[in-house]
Design a protein around this nucleic acid. Structure first.
Lengths: 245, 245
DNA sequence: ATTAGTTTGCGTCAAAATTACACTTTGCTA
DNA sequence: TAGCAAAGTGTAATTTTGACGCAAACTAAT
């Protein structure tokens, strides 16, 4: 058997942070400090991990360093390690400018999370010049293989949303049912009948009304709801798949 | 901000290969060549990747090298990179005996697959002294963090089985419905009503009868079935989750 | 040839879940 | 006070689920 050289690799983490507001799903991207001319390429927040650092911890740290977001519950998407994932010319230029060993292979472990956009105002630092929420449908291309990673993150979210409740982290503590409705439509990418949606939510006991109304809206005010934490957690654990097998 | 040293890491891949027979689900484990005394610890087939090798390719190669299994469709489970994942004393001894840099951190990317046990007779080689199918309920402890990885693989399988058909890779080309039935019971870990199961399978168009009977069985012979490839693939793509949202 | 043993294969009914669909209510604004 | 905009509500037809028992087909043993 042919014997090949085994090389060390660097490990990085990248974070797909998804937020939601009335306009739809958005992803948190960074614009890098312009170490090369006309670097308009956006990227997921991500960086190399440290020596003795757990992957999860590294993801937390890197996210905080680049965007200021702290204590975000991150879930792993998976590892991305194509040998040529750093080989786009623009990316190589940037790596040469900022990395000590720009030619070394890097395998990245991707994480994702859902957050309530309004609670987190990104504060760029480190090599992030800026951190911005970008509507997912506007994302065209990203640095490295980050576009692919974003798609994987969205996929995982959609699959998860089919069997688990989603929204606790994505909506404010007090919200109205139509926000939850829009959220699910955004995640699943299709329309959901309002009445059927509400019936289901009620049946599952996901939410409870606070007996307060919106004020100042130019239409019939909605009741304000909160999640029923007990039922929510139970559903996260059990799942609500009701497929028959 | 405190500046820490960033170290290269090695990357490995590990494979959770699940097989099924009339006794239930089994996992393919290797027994390592005894470089240390009394090394009875079993492990998932896995090894370091090469320099310029894609992760998926590496998983295929390593699996073949250790067990002889070729052309297995592998799906990624995720990355496991706890800094102390190699620190059990038995594991350290073994690493010292076989690895050039036994102290270096290794992050592993785990894969899983389902195969028809009968089609693959493991042929141990490389540092595998033996490769054996072990009933999953008998697996007590494994090398490194492999037990944890196995559990993650089983979890992924169960979750997948709820929304996608499973079995094409796990059963022979010609099978009987009660095998498929037992398979699902093994995967989901609970009993399924025979009649309801058959009704569902029929409704989904998953299988079709070959109009042949078993021969030589000491009871009413079963019709022999094959998967309906078209419907099977469609269900894999679309999923058969019928949850309401 | 009969019997015992084992697994296959089928159908129905009640309860629950899904789907499709339209109008009234409420509060604000002009 | 008229008009706008979103909230909120019910029903009927269909489909799906879940529970449940018995006759038929074949072999092996006697």
């Amino acid at each position: 058997m042919e014997k090949k050289h085994q090389l060390n690799s660097r490990i990085s983490v990248d974070c797909v942070i998804l937020g939601f507001d009335s306009e739809g799903l958005k992803v948190l991207l960074i614009e890098r400090k312009p170490v090369i001319e006309n670097d308009f390429i956006k990227a997921l927040p991500g960086d190399l991990i440290y020596d003795d650092e757990a992957l999860d911890t590294a993801a937390q740290r890197v996210l905080t360093e680049l965007t200021g977001l702290e204590n975000i519950f991150l879930e792993q998407i998976g590892a991305f390690g194509s040998p040529d994932r750093l080989n786009k010319p623009e990316d190589r230029q940037w790596l040469k400018a900022v990395r000590k060993f720009p030619n070394e292979r890097v395998i990245t472990v991707a994480y994702y999370s859902l957050v309530n956009k309004d609670l987190y105002t990104p504060q760029p630092s480190s090599f992030a010049q800026n951190a911005v929420w970008v509507p997912i449908e506007e994302v065209q291309s990203l640095a490295f293989d980050h576009f692919e990673i974003l798609q994987a993150g969205l996929n995982q979210l959609r699959n998860k949303a089919r069997v688990q409740p989603i929204g606790f982290n994505l909506l404010p503590e007090r919200f109205i049912l139509s926000d939850l409705h829009k959220l699910y439509e955004a995640i699943l990418g299709r329309e959901l009948d309002k009445r059927n949606f509400r019936r289901k939510v009620n049946k599952l006991g996901l939410v409870e009304s606070l007996n307060e109304k919106q004020i100042g809206v130019p239409h019939k005010p909605s009741l304000i709801y909160k999640f029923n934490e007990t039922n929510y957690k139970r559903l996260v654990e059990d799942g609500f798949d009701n497929f028959g097998f």
